[in-house]
Structure formats: C-alpha cells, structure tokens
Write a protein that binds this DNA or RNA. Sequence first.
DNA 1: TTGAAAGCGCTAACAT
DNA 2: ATGTTAGCGCTTTCAA
Lengths: 333, 333
Amino acid sequence: MSVKIKDVAELAGVSVATVSRVLSNGSVSAALKTRVEEAVAQLGYRPNLSARRLRSQLSQTVGLIVSDVRNPFFTAVSRAVEDAAYRAGMRVILCNADEDPDKEAMYLRLMQEERVSGVIFSPTSVTAGRFRPERFEFPVVMIDREGPPGLTDAVVLDNPQAGRLLVEHLIARGYRKIGGLFGNVSTTGAARRAGYEAALAQHGLPSSVRFVAPSTEAASTAVRAWLAEPDWPDALVVSNGLLLLGAVHALTEAGLSIPGDMALAGFDNDVWTGLVGHGLTVIEQPVYDIGVVAMEMLLSRLENPSLAKRKVVLNGALLERASTSGRGAAAPS
Amino acid sequence: MSVKIKDVAELAGVSVATVSRVLSNGSVSAALKTRVEEAVAQLGYRPNLSARRLRSQLSQTVGLIVSDVRNPFFTAVSRAVEDAAYRAGMRVILCNADEDPDKEAMYLRLMQEERVSGVIFSPTSVTAGRFRPERFEFPVVMIDREGPPGLTDAVVLDNPQAGRLLVEHLIARGYRKIGGLFGNVSTTGAARRAGYEAALAQHGLPSSVRFVAPSTEAASTAVRAWLAEPDWPDALVVSNGLLLLGAVHALTEAGLSIPGDMALAGFDNDVWTGLVGHGLTVIEQPVYDIGVVAMEMLLSRLENPSLAKRKVVLNGALLERASTSGRGAAAPS
DNA sequence: TTGAAAGCGCTAACAT
DNA sequence: ATGTTAGCGCTTTCAA
C-alpha cells in the first residue's frame, strides 16, 4: 500500500524508532535528523493516523455535534470551534444531527468508536433531558442548550435575559399585545419564553404564545393561522433565526407591513435580517465567543477531569432596528 | 481503558475471532451469536475504529473539502454528500479550507494521513491549476470548480450557460448597459464571465467587468467604487451569493432602488434573495444533486479505478423575480 | 463453525 | 543518542 515508517528508516539507514523520534521532535542528532527528513521528503511519507492513535491512545480529536448546519448560528460556532481546536493541535469531526434524537444517539456512539478526546454538543431537549454523561468515556461540553444541571460543562446565552430584553424594548416602544413564537424542540425556546413571560408579567401585560417545530415552514404556518384569528398581537417575539424567517414569509404573503401591522423582534443577526424592510430588531449572540469558550472549557476539562462542572453564561446584544420602530406614543412606565 | 473485544470474548466464553465475526455478520451459529450479542450489550462494547481501520486497511471514510462553510451553497451540498455517504455506509470528514490554498494543502495532507477512501473537493483556482491527482493515493472528485481537464472526475454547473441565461434575460427585459461582478479566486467566476461576455458579444453590446475577492465586503466596496464613476451600468450580473449580498448592501446604502436605479441578477437561491425588495432574480443551482452525484461518482470510481475520468455538467434554473423587472419597453432582438 | 496466531503501522519501554 | 522489541485492538488467514 503506501509508504510506511519502515521504508523511511531503511532509506535513511536508521531504526524506525529514530524516524518516530524525528517526527515527534524527540532527541535525535542533527545529522540523523536531516537524513530522516530527506528520506521523508523523497518518499513523500505521511504517518498513518489510525496506527498512531491506536498505539498512543491519543486521538487529538474532538467531536462537534450540532443541531443543524443550515442554521448560520451553528456554522459560525463551528468555525470558532475549529479555529480554537487547530490552535490547540486538535482536529474536529463535525456532525450534523438535524434536530433528530436518533441521529444524536448515533453520533454519540460514533464519537465513542472514534475514541475522541471530548465532544461539544447542542442537544435536542429530548436528549438533553435524559443525557447521562457517565455513560461516555469522554467529557461533553453543551453549547446553546443545557443538559441536566450540574452534570456537564455548558456555555449558553442568558436566554431569559435576552427574552426579557426584547419584551422590555417592545413595551418601551409602545407595544402592548406582544405574542411569542418559540421552538418546541430545544431548551433554548423554553428559556427565552420564561424571560418573555416574566417581563410581561412584571408589566401586568398578558402573554400569548405558540410553540412550533424548528423549521421556517412550521413557523410561517403557525403565523398564518394566528393571523386568521380575530385578535392577533401587534408585536411578535420569535425565538430563533429560522422561525423569524418563517414569520417574515407569513406576514409578507399576507400583505402586512412590518412594523405597521405587526412589529417583529427575534434572535440571531443573520445576514438577511438587515435586508427585511429597514432591518429586523434582533438579539445578536456572541457566536464566535460561544465556540471558543466551549473549546477552552473542553481543553481545561481534559487537563483536569476532577474540576467541578462549570456553566458559562454569555449575554446577547440588542440590535434595535426598524421592525420595532414603535406605536408613535412613547411608553408609560 | 475501555472495554475491548477480548473482554467480550471472555464474558461470552468464545474467541475474539468469533466476536469479530458476529460484529461483521460472518458465519456464526445462532447460539454463539446471541451469547456474544448479550455480552456486547452488557459491557456496552464499542469497536475501536482506529484499530479496525488499521487492520482492515479500509477507512470507510471520505473527505469533503469545501471552500467556505458560511456559504449556504456549500452547506447544502455537504448535507447531500453526507446523506449519500451514510446510505453507502461511509463517513464524511468535513473540512473548511476558507478559500485558502495553504489550508487546502494542509487538508489534502490530512486526508492522506487519515487514509480516506476518496475526497470531494472544491478548490481555489490556484490549487485547481496546479493540482496533481497522481500525488494522492485516493481518487478526487471536484465539485463546483474544475481542476485540470481530464485529470479528475468533476461535477459542475454549466456556468457559461448560466451566465448567458442571465444576460439574455436582462437583454430581453430591456437592459443594455450590463455590468458583471465576478469572484477572482475560483474558476467558477471565470466560467460565468465567459458566458456573460459571449451573450453580450452576440447582441453587439459592450461588457464591463470587475473581479473581487470572494467576500461580501469586497463586493460592496467594488460596487461603491463603481457607483462613484460617471457611467455605471443599469444592470449587474453577480457571480455568487456572497457577492450578490455585497452588491445589495452597496446599493441600499447609496439609497438606490432595485431595479429602478440598477437591476440585479445573480447566483444561488439563498433564503434572503427572496426578501430583498420583491425578490432577486437568480440562477438556482441543483445543490442537492451536485452533492449526491459527486458521491456517486466517487463510489463508482472506488469500485472501478480504471474508468475514464468523467465530468457531469448540471444546469441551473433561472428564477425571474422583481430585481430585473425591466425598463418598461420590451426588448428588440 | 470455531479458535490460534500473525500482523496492520506506529510509539514507547527498555537496553545499549 | 540510537536500536530492539513489545503491543495498541482489531481482522483475517490458516488449521482443526
């Protein structure tokens, strides 16, 4: 098959151990080192990672299991994880679980078979609820969505706070009938809803929520149905980018204006949110930080497995744009 | 460390060979088979893929090296590749080369070290131009962008045809000063430009082109500069989704209307293209097909390495939307 | 059908 | 500093 360490050793006239030392910067005399390097270059030798991993019991690999690669939030996070991983000399296996608990289980099994050093994971709420970290030989860092409290490391947005921020903003702009559209499959939707409810309650305003599957189509269907009812909201809080797009579709189709007929505020500063009308008001997540921090947590966990589990909570930033420009009158308190 | 085949064999009271046969559906008596399966379940045994790959010399893995994971075109293609790969019992290692020839070289080296069965690759034009497939032990299928003609399999869009389609459409809608904005790093931009030039020449119309780096920022900078010139086009053909977004930004900032001040036609039916004004006219690529066909080509190449190299050319579909609604008068021929 | 044993390519003791 | 050798966990002859 391909050229192996033995071939290099023979050409250089040294033992395989010496070649191995050269490759891993062990102590080798300058003379032998150059001879080996020449042999490597001449033969085009490339080490076999399967053999190396098997022997050294070091995978130098982390798994990243995301819910949906089509969601720009996760592609942004995965780039950050990749960058941080390569800086630390690690490789990343990117897996796309498609919001499907079966696929999540399949990939976790695969990670075990690959003997990865650790996994960064954004689980569905089904998997999050029953996740047993002790069943896996690698540490897991949850991102975006939390698992059972205290059982794994996690880095998440302050979701209740973000939900609250949007509602407070809408109230300040004069909106009073504020609906909420949330994803039904991740814990994120539930946490954002909690903040939404709390803020409304604090102002003595009623809430009105819908839960939908995490897809643009499901969201637009839900909003269409909502619009068919007699008394729809004058503003909508939407819990992620995919759903927000669905809401925009439904409103546009119905010939309604944003924010004239309905104000819209959501999550994720995706490219297109700046293009709808004069822009959509959103919570911008620190996507790159989320990825980098997750990787750092994983590395420090690998260095020190007995550390207490940590949860890092990051804050989103409110980007005020035209989709919530207000009802004319300023808000009473 | 973790439980291994020997542990399973001992618990089941059989040899490791028998366990291995059970795992790979070799011929084993029903009685032993159940005993082994029970032992596997009881111990939670998971095979070590590094060991398996080392011994069997079969990686069951393909590499997918894309230019930019943030580009929805590539995330869509990668999902298709993944689906097709899993159907064929293969895994996918997704690598993001970031339009950087150095990273491409690094990943190709990594693929060699992983001893992958094959690679699906969308190279920069730098790498495409000097690509030597015989230097790699695995077959390569190029996607989206071609390498040296006849040296590798490839699946690409009919780019000249697509460029032509857009220009013909604009001419039919009454536009005469049709500019072109193309990416300077992939062969795709050049091929689309060729079609653009050919169509204009055929109608005796002048061309006017700009080449830019493959980023939204570069595109908006270029368009801004263009608008500062005295005689800018009344319609623009833009060679991909990232650049198209940049063009939209520049026009919007300048307070210009689409298509009133400038018509816009581009590539890639990204979600947001439907949201700009009443929609952007674009060539929609058969993204899923591209991925599936690439995987199929790779599999058939693995089965039959001596096959002649093939190039599959797929057609894009013109989605006519409001951004090219016309200059009032119908077009003369 | 089953088991014993060799060996995939590499690293890491251990010896020199 | 360098070489010899055992063995990582598995698959695959080869015998029985």
